[in-house]
Nucleic acid binder design. Structure first.
Lengths: 190, 190
DNA sequence: TTACATTATCTTAAATTTAAGATTTAGGAC
DNA sequence: GTCCTAAATCTTAAATTTAAGATAATGTAA
C-alpha cells in the first residue's frame, strides 16, 4: 500500500531565504536603465512573488502549530489523543465505517489505524464488526458508551475551537475559509 | 522542562458537528414569532458562528496536511527530514545559534533537538561549538559542507513551495498571510 | 477455472517525538 | 561564600507514526 509521510516540526522554516536579497527589489526603476532593465524588473517581480509564497508557507506553519497545540491540549483534557478524537468524531457522525475509509478520511496510515482502533476498542468506545458482504472488510462501530462519552466531551471541545478562532471576525473567517480551501485544493492536485 | 505536544492526525475532524443542526438557521425570521424569538435568533447566530469556526479549523487542518505532505516529500528528495531541513535552514541564515534557541524557533522539544543535531553533525553538515561565555550553552554551527549542500538544495525547494502556493494569486496570498497571521497570534496568546 | 492484479487489514521494525528527570552551570539573595 | 532557582543540554523510556511486507479475500480476464 502507498503510505503517507509524517508531518514536520512546525513549518520547515524557510524564514526569509530568497535566492536574491530582498534589497534587489528596492532599487528605483531608473537605477541602471540599461538594455535589460525589463529583464531585471521581471526577475525582481518573480523573486518577490516567491518570497510572498514562502512567507505564506511559514505563516501557515506557525499558525497551524499554535492552533493545533491548543486544540490537542484540549482533546487530551478529555482523555483522547488527537487521532483518537478524530476517529471518535468520525464514528460519531457516520456510526459505522470501514477501517480503510477511516484512514483515508483522517489521512493516517493503516498501521496507525490498527493501533488507534485497538486502543479505542479496548476502552469500549467502539467495536470491530466484520462486513457480511466482503470478508476483507472490518467496520468500526461506535458503542453506546462511545456515543455517551463523545456527547459529553464534544460541546466543550467545540467551544474551545471557537475561542481559538476568535482572532478573526465572522467575515474574516469566511474569507480565510475560502482562501485556505483554495490553497489546499491546489496542493492536493498539483 | 515544559515540553510541547505532538501534532494530530490531520485536523481533529470536527467535520460538521454543531449542537444544533444547521437547518435550524434556515427557518424564516417569522417562522414562530413568539415571545422569545430574539433569544432563538441569538442562539442561531451563535451556532452559526461556531460552525464557521469549526469549518475554518477543519479546512485549515486539511490544507495544512496536503501542503505539508507535499513539502515533506520535496525535502526528503533532498535527503533531509522536515526537522532536519528546518534546522539547516535556520543555521544557513543564522550561521551559529544555541541548541536551546533552535528548539524555541522550530517548536520542537529538547530530546528531538539532540536527536536531529546528532544526525546532522554525524553527516558533517554542522558542528557543535561550546560557548565560551556560558558553559551550559552549546552552539550549532553550519559547516562549509553544510552551506554548500543547502545552497544546492534550497532553490529547488523554494520553487516547490512557490508552486504549492500557486492556488492563490499574489493579492490573495497577501490576504491569506494577514488573516492566518492574525489567527495564529490569537492562538498563541489566548 | 486459473492466473493476476487489487484491496483491506494486520504485523513488525525502524524512525521520530514527547515526557520526565539527571547533570551541569549561572545568577541572584542573603 | 552559601543557598536557591532557573536555564541548557542530555539521557532514557514510552508513545506514536511511517514504511514495508505478509495474509486473505475479491474481481477480472483469458
Amino acid at each position: 500500500m502507498k503510505e503517507m509521510s509524517r508531518e514536520p516540526a512546525h513549518g520547515t522554516g524557510l524564514g526569509k531565504a530568497s535566492g536574491e536579497p530582498l534589497t534587489d527589489m528596492q532599487q528605483g526603476p531608473d537605477a541602471t536603465a540599461t538594455a535589460n532593465a525589463d529583464d531585471r524588473n521581471r526577475q525582481a517581480q518573480n523573486t518577490h512573488e516567491r518570497d510572498v509564497s514562502l512567507k505564506l508557507f511559514v505563516v501557515l506553519s506557525k499558525a497551524y502549530k499554535s492552533i493545533m497545540d491548543s486544540a490537542v491540549r484540549d482533546m487530551k483534557k478529555h482523555g483522547l489523543s488527537a487521532t483518537e478524537f478524530t476517529v471518535m468524531e468520525l464514528l460519531f457522525h457516520k456510526g459505522r465505517i470501514p477501517l480503510q475509509q477511516i484512514g483515508d478520511k483522517i489521512l493516517v496510515t493503516s498501521g496507525s489505524i490498527t493501533y488507534n482502533i485497538d486502543k479505542l476498542e479496548n476502552r469500549g468506545l467502539l467495536r470491530r464488526v466484520p462486513s457480511p458482504d466482503d470478508r476483507r472488510v472490518t467496520f468500526a462501530e461506535i458503542t453506546d458508551e462511545g456515543t455517551r462519552m463523545f456527547e459529553q466531551v464534544f460541546p466543550s471541545h467545540a467551544e474551545a475551537i471557537d475561542r481559538l478562532m476568535n482572532g478573526l471576525s465572522l467575515e474574516e473567517k469566511k474569507q480565510a475559509i475560502d482562501l485556505i480551501k483554495k490553497l489546499g485544493l491546489k496542493a492536493q492536485s498539483g
